[in-house]
Write a protein that binds this DNA or RNA. Structure first.
Lengths: 236, 236
DNA sequence: TCGAGAGCAAAGATCAGATCTTTTGCCTCT
DNA sequence: AGAGGCAAAAGATCTGATCTTTGCTCTCGA
């Protein structure tokens, strides 16, 4: 699951604590003490300390003298931290996380498409149409994995082409949504032809510099995706 | 400004390094060494280490043995981290940060409005209309600060009412945009009456459960705000 | 009886020094 | 020229000591 213990004890501890907290096996308000964590994970203070410090920077815990490490209420968490997203996608909150992300996408991507229509470089336009072709090919052949890869490439390219760093930073998140959707069978066994057509329309509109058309087509895409997630497709 | 050195040496060091990096006084690729940072800031290893660890978790640096601490390229930064946003708003990148955030808002808020129309609680509906009334009063009297506060409250309430945690998590960011816009005179000296009217429309539509109308009115708001930022209003 | 202030003790914060581990650059041997 | 190995560099981890803040309690005075 995910990219756990990225080299280093502190990373490992961080990951374990993150999972415990996001999965609510450690609830907000619960208090941990450094010493306790040292023995629990069998590592030294510095390691625990660094992990806690990162958790704190994500708003998941607060550290106070004489009290200990307190698990913070969810309201303060930095829900856009890729690590938190990964933890939640791995654990119990997966469905809710996917829902949140899908709704977010509904807002983000149409705007990104509109901006890309104005700012995309020729190379990016090429990458977009290339991705659409890939999608078309693998969609027809029914190779869902390859289709997914092309889909991700399309959306990533588009978000980057928006010329907005923050939108671009969401490309990993969008990729996670697309992946989750495929792997949890929340999309048709064979991609809808009109979904591919809409992608083509976006690519075309971006190339033509038509922001409105790009936004509209992209809105169709995410709207359809949302619908598909709500009604788990009957495999007809 | 912002919430600098939040108690603790490590926080202070973190903050200073963050500013240095976001302001490009430390450029991607540059290498720091722990020992060097110890003496530079006059703190011990553990403190430097914890600061670096947090910076690393934000994707701003990478740490490798035998090499040192390398400032990472911007592409990997977690641009949604409130701290990074604050640093950029404080420093040279302010205008670009505000632009990014405004574009983001254009996508986020209409969706949030639509969702809120479906999910808002009566209390939240009340808070929304209350905020609109505040805006109206202070808008007429020309008290920009009070108007800003009401505006922030309105948008914060709406984002929370969307029932989407991630959208809710952006309320601080939106508040930052609104504040920045006011304090940098990127909005009219006296709020446009129709801006207030649109806010009222959103509140009304949310209360009526009309997602489409809410989304449309909110789109008007953010669209207008974007325009206002592009054409620095001549103070008539 | 109740509130303010002193004092205690707990727990994190910081420091300092030692040791481990990985990685990179270089040097040698073939 | 290339493979293999040696050694230094720099972060990673462990430890033990000390500092600082802060919640709690106890006492004293009104």
């Amino acid at each position: 699951m995910a990219d756990n213990d990225r080299a280093g004890l502190h990373g490992s501890v961080l990951d374990q604590l993150g999972v415990l907290i996001t999965s609510a096996r450690l609830r907000p308000g619960e208090v941990l003490r450094i010493e306790q964590l040292e023995s629990r994970f069998g590592v030294s203070r510095s390691v625990v300390r660094e992990a806690i410090r990162v958790l704190e920077s994500m708003g998941m815990v607060t550290s106070r003298r004489r009290v200990g490490i307190t698990v913070a209420p969810r309201a303060g968490w930095n829900l856009f931290d890729p690590r938190i997203i990964a933890w939640r996608l791995d654990g119990a909150g997966r469905d809710e996380q996917l829902r949140s992300l899908s709704e977010l996408r509904r807002g983000i991507e149409p705007v990104a498409a509109a901006l890309a229509a104005v700012r995309a470089t020729p190379a990016q336009c090429g990458a977009l149409t290339g991705a659409v072709m890939e999608m078309s090919v693998h969609g027809r052949s029914g190779d869902l994995e390859a289709y997914l890869a092309a889909d991700i490439l399309f959306h990533r390219t588009l978000l980057e082409a928006s010329g907005n760093e923050m939108l671009g930073a969401l490309s990993n998140v969008v990729a996670a949504v697309l992946t989750g959707r495929t792997h949890h069978h929340l999309m048709p066994a064979r991609p809808e032809p009109f979904a591919i057509r809409w992608h083509a329309e976006v690519a075309q509109a971006v190339q033509a510099g038509d922001a409105e058309a790009a936004e509209r087509a992209m809105r169709d895409i995410v709207e359809e995706a949302t619908q598909a997630m709500l009604d788990p497709s009957p495999p007809a």
